[in-house]
Amino acid sequence: MRAVNGRFALALVATVLVASVAIAAPATDTQPDADFLFVGSFHMNNPGRDVHNTRADDVLSAKRQREIADVARLIARFKPTKIMVEADVASQAKLDQAFAASCHGKRPLTRNETEQLGFRIACDEKLNGVVAVDWNDMGPIKDEASVDWPKAIERHGQQAQRAKDDAIGKAVNDEDQRVLDTGTIGDMLVRLNSPEWLRANAQAYFRIGLYGTADDPIGANWDMLWYGRNLTIFNNIVRRTEPGDRVLVLYGAGHGNWLRQLATDSGKYRVQDTQRWLQEGAPTE
């Protein structure tokens, strides 16, 4: 009887060890099968929809066109197989028409970064076009008042905190403006994709999340909407990615934190160092 119990105990230990190994390395773990390069940009056509907006001069000027062509050349070394851009998914057909006309010299590029960088690189690399992956809706949020954090600031007397936060945001934006005014397009993109700028950007969204109260969490609601938008965009990117793809994502720089993080956490992508691809003489891999 004692021997039987001993064999049972050994078998139980072996089972536990096997289970532990399985937990440590689950069979569902995936290995990256595509490359991901995110290039965050300022909005070259000055839509003015952000809290703090950089005022871009005319990117169609001869000087800026030379700078954009130089940046496009550097990014093109990545050899993208697909270029994903900040355009609504529903606009794909219109985007395809504009790309075809521009690539064949029948239509000039507009001031939008989707065209100045996306169209330019796609045409030079002989791609069929760019891929629209944007989503900018309310999703399951039905009441816009539930995400109106400026109103929550008034409601809860948080104007002093808003003034402090605005001063921080203005300082970051002033430096953005200085770099753009005195430097090149390449200098600006290096800044917008730097760890320092991304950290400041992430902290800005953290501060928005604190507006309101525990019973009236308007700022947190807005951050949930922002995260949901980026998750939906990222899902659109994944759905258009195939094994072996080299995916270039050209987007507003404010999306950089979440889209890079999601690409890393997904396990699907080898996430590239953006600054490396924006600098002359940097290694290509």
Rank of each mutant, 00 (worst) to 15 (best):
T274R: 03
N201Q: 11
T114W: 06
W277V: 07
F8C: 14
S61T: 13
I23T: 12
Q203N: 13
A25W: 15
D273W: 02
F119N: 05
A3D: 15
R66S: 13
D265Q: 09
A171C: 08
I153H: 01
I121C: 07
K170R: 12
M1I: 13
V238R: 09
H52E: 13
D174K: 08
P195M: 02
Y211T: 05
T284S: 13
Q158H: 07
L12W: 07
T28L: 12
A76P: 03
F78T: 02
L109S: 01
W135E: 12
K126T: 10
A76E: 08
V133L: 10
K82L: 10
Q158Y: 08
G254V: 01
A87L: 14
L74A: 06
I168L: 15
L231T: 09
D124R: 13
A282H: 09
P217T: 04
L248S: 04
D174W: 07
V21R: 14
T213F: 05
V133G: 05
F42T: 09
G256D: 01
R55S: 12
H156E: 02
K106Q: 14
Y251P: 00
R111S: 14
A263R: 01
G48A: 06
W149M: 03
G252M: 04
A22E: 14
A90V: 15
R155P: 00
P217V: 07
G6H: 15
F8T: 15
K268V: 11
D223M: 14
V71E: 04
Y251D: 00
R240C: 10
I185G: 00
G254N: 02
L127S: 10
F42Q: 06
V16P: 00
R246E: 10
A160L: 12
F42W: 10
D70C: 12
L231V: 11
A62P: 08
I218G: 01
D50Q: 12
L189C: 03
L262W: 02
S266N: 04
R276W: 03
D176V: 14
H43C: 07
G228N: 08
R229G: 01
A76T: 05
N193D: 03
P32W: 07
A90L: 14
G183S: 05
V59M: 09
I153E: 02
L192A: 03
N173V: 09
V4F: 15
Q97D: 13
E67G: 10
N221H: 06
A220P: 01
G6V: 14
W226M: 07
R276M: 11
R276T: 11
Q92I: 08
A25K: 15
V89S: 12
Q158I: 06
D245G: 10
V13Q: 04
Q92M: 08
R155S: 07
F99T: 00
T15E: 10
D50G: 06
K142P: 07
A263F: 00
R64L: 08
M84K: 02
D216I: 03
M188H: 10
Q275C: 10
T54I: 15
G183A: 05
C103M: 02
A69K: 10
G281E: 12
N128S: 15
T232D: 09
